[in-house]
């Protein structure tokens, strides 16, 4: 594939930090059905250890390895005939194990995917079933999920071994509102946050299960999603996206917002809005935050990347000749952006 470099060129704003996305590889999944998610995982086998790409469509999940020939070779494929795949659930720091969420309109199953060298077969054991509102993989081989709604909501942290076997289940005190999304807190491993359907930000102690704070944000859009939180100097900095914002004015309706929260007083303030550069239109559809980089697929089919430290859009990736982008994910190494299209094509860009 020809190298394809895209960077923002704006001579007016000299101070703007420009990023560069350079295409390094293309993977074409031949499943024939609509692509639903993509991710990366370190995979160790008898004859190789490599950072592999995981592609998910509704009926199957495939693991891909970059071969010396420059092509991508399928390592394993897991098939799902009863319940469709909704998303890949990244498991930070975990090797040779993939987690997927399956269901119809909402998640009804969470499964681990791995390969058993004992019998030479791929396995897909069930980890959890129910009306699952949100799920997130945490550091140190843990998985948090919320089931049910309102008074009947159960929030649970599931610890697992290297082989994916259950070790321990810890209940977290449920909030009165339904959880929409969880996020880890960088710099505070035992803290967990979530955003609820009524735009309350909830803080837990993961070790004790205590609900420490519930903070109504009040100034955000209903249905916002929390992606990441950073703890620093007694404050929490939380990155939110707004999938339901209006498209009309991207400056008023940014793709991401950073809010600052004082957990001690339960007071919060809007800190930074991550909007599109002038002349670029589109509304946030979906995306991911990793380290200090945030990537979003816009309704226009373009992917936009922001630097959270500088608060600026650093790169834009317009649709290519094959079509619009539908997925944007950071690799586990932070340095690559995986850009996916509905037909199962995955383009890998190095981001500098």
């Amino acid at each position: 594939e020809p190298l394809n470099e895209v960077a923002i060129e704006d001579p007016v704003e000299d101070s703007q930090r420009k990023g560069s996305l350079q295409m390094t590889s293309k993977l074409k999944s031949c499943s024939g059905s609509c692509s639903v998610d993509v991710g990366t995982v370190w995979w160790e086998a008898a004859d190789f250890t490599a950072l592999c790409v995981v592609t998910a469509c509704e009926a199957s999940v495939s693991l891909w390895r970059h071969l010396e020939s420059g092509h991508w070779g399928s390592v394993h494929t897991w098939h799902f005939t009863k319940v469709p795949v909704i998303q890949i659930v990244p498991l930070p720091g975990v090797q040779s194990l993939v987690c997927v969420a399956l269901g119809g309109l909402e998640i009804s199953e969470i499964r681990f995917l791995f390969y058993s060298s004992e019998d030479g077969c791929v396995k897909q054991p069930l980890v959890k079933t129910g009306n699952i509102n949100a799920v997130l993989g945490l550091k140190n081989r843990r998985l948090v999920s919320s089931c049910g709604s309102l008074q009947h909501q159960e929030v649970e942290v599931f610890s697992f071994s290297e082989t994916g076997r259950s070790k321990e289940r810890q209940a977290l005190m449920p909030p009165e509102e339904t959880v929409l999304a969880f996020a880890e807190v960088d710099g505070m491993q035992e803290a967990l946050i979530a955003l609820t359907t009524t735009d309350c930000l909830v803080v837990w102690n993961l070790t004790s299960g205590q609900l420490l704070r519930k903070v109504p944000l009040g100034f955000s859009y209903l249905g916002s999603v929390c992606h990441k939180a950073y703890s620093d100097s007694g404050l929490l900095f939380v990155v939110l996206s707004h999938p339901h914002a209006e498209e009309s004015n991207s400056c008023v309706n940014p793709a991401f917002q950073v809010v600052v929260l004082n957990p001690k007083t339960a007071r919060s303030a809007r800190l930074m809005s991550l909007s599109l550069p002038l002349g670029i239109t589109g509304r946030y559809l979906e995306g991911e935050v990793k380290g200090v980089s945030a990537a979003a697929v816009l309704t226009s089919g373009t992917i936009a990347v922001w630097d959270l430290f500088w608060g600026q859009c650093t790169a834009l990736l317009p649709p290519n000749s094959e079509g619009s982008w539908s997925l944007a994910r950071w690799s586990v190494t932070d340095t690559c952006l995986l850009a996916g299209q509905k037909d199962g094509s995955v383009y890998i860009y190095s981001y500098t």
């Binding site: 102690n205 704070r213 007694g234 001690k264 007083t265 007071r267």
Partner: peptide, 23 residues
């Protein structure tokens, strides 16, 4: 943001809230 916007800040908020919150 000044401290007056967000109220007094505590570096040890996590331990302090954990000692106050019901188990």
């Amino acid at each position: 943001h000044s401290e007056s916007d967000l109220g007094p800040i505590s570096i040890n908020w996590f331990e302090e809230l954990s000692s106050e919150a019901p188990l």
